[in-house]
Design a protein around this nucleic acid. Structure first.
Length: 104
DNA sequence: CGAGTGACCGCAA
DNA sequence: ATTGCGGCCACTC
């Protein structure tokens, strides 16, 4: 019963918060779910200015590669993903065919 | 309110 | 294969 239209940022954070452990999602897919398939960059921006408690490490790009601006760099994100049981290649990429999470 | 920015995406050389 | 450029749209200052 939102009298005001939900902010994009709120939707993105909600989706990211629903990503189960051991799964990943792409920026473009999250943006599309939130209603703006071309706002993939915005998702990244929200990741930087949004709620730091959310599992942003589970968010990867369309190539399955980890983000560049993650705190600690790609190493930090890869470390966080591996800590959750997600296999990350030495090329800092994850297998989207196996780990991509598709919300209902 | 206006301008700049970006943890992206896709294509061209 | 790698590198560079533009577009796209919401967020921050």
């Amino acid at each position: 019963m939102q009298q005001h239209p939900p902010l994009f940022r709120t939707l993105v954070e909600a989706v990211v918060a629903e990503i189960p452990r051991g799964r990943v999602m792409t920026y473009g897919q999250i943006a599309a779910i939130c209603g703006s398939p071309a706002a993939a960059r915005i998702v990244g921006g929200i990741a930087h200015f949004g709620n730091p408690d959310l599992p942003w490490q589970r968010v990867v790009n369309k190539h399955g590669g980890v983000a560049t601006g993650y705190p600690g760099g790609k190493i930090g994100q890869k470390n966080a993903l591996v800590s959750e049981g997600i296999k990350v290649t030495k090329d800092f990429t994850v297998d989207l065919e196996e780990l991509l999470w598709n919300p209902s």
